[in-house]
Every structure is written in structure tokens, then in C-alpha cells.
Amino acid sequence: MTVKELAERLELKILVEGDLGREVTGCYIGDLLSWVMGRAPEDSAWLTVMGNINSIAVATLADVSCIVLVENAALDENARQKAEMHEVNILLTQENSYHLAVKLHELLQ
């Protein structure tokens, strides 16, 4: 499934459009950056409330396919700019990580 399909199927709002054709093969949830950096599998959807500029660096370097900001977490303006520069997909939902991950799991079956 691509990031674009994921956004459509789960009704996620696209905040930053990077490469929406990227494949999503899994999901990782976490807000502690070096935890995520060390454990998130590449090509996963990263569910977090961390919308700061350092999250963008983590997403780029750990090669996740998108950041999903859950529970309407805020995206900082400088983070948005950096994400646009590095073509990082950022999506937004009002759901919490648990509920979104359950739905994502069904889609990935």
C-alpha cells in the first residue's frame, strides 16, 4: 500500500506531500526520538505526537515512509519547511495511535 492509499483509506489529512507513492509495509509508534531511530523499521508509518524539526531528521534518517501526527498534534512551522525540503510525507489524524494502528493493521493484512 502506498502512502497516498493509506491517507485515503484512513481519511488522513495530508500536511506535507513528499513522495506519496512510497510503500508502507508496517507501523511504528513512539515519541522518544532515539527510541524510534533505533527501532522503527524502514518503510513503516511512524505514529507520533512529535511534530518538531527533529522528528523530520529522524524520519529522513530512519527512512520511514511517512509521519502520522495523531490526536491532531501540532506541526511546527520550521518542521513543515524542513519536511517540504526533504520530501517527507506528513499526515494528520484526530484519532489516537491505538485506534489508528488497529485500522492500519487491517489494511496491511
Binding site: L32, L33, S34, G38, M50, N52
Partner: peptide, 12 residues
């Protein structure tokens, strides 16, 4: 508050 401080950097 920015998400650092897990103490996982060096182990990573």
C-alpha cells in the same frame, strides 16, 4: 520535551 533523552543514542 523535544523527544530527546531516552538514553538510547549511544546504544543505537
Amino acid at each position: 520535551t523535544l523527544g530527546f533523552g531516552a538514553g538510547m543514542g549511544l546504544p543505537n
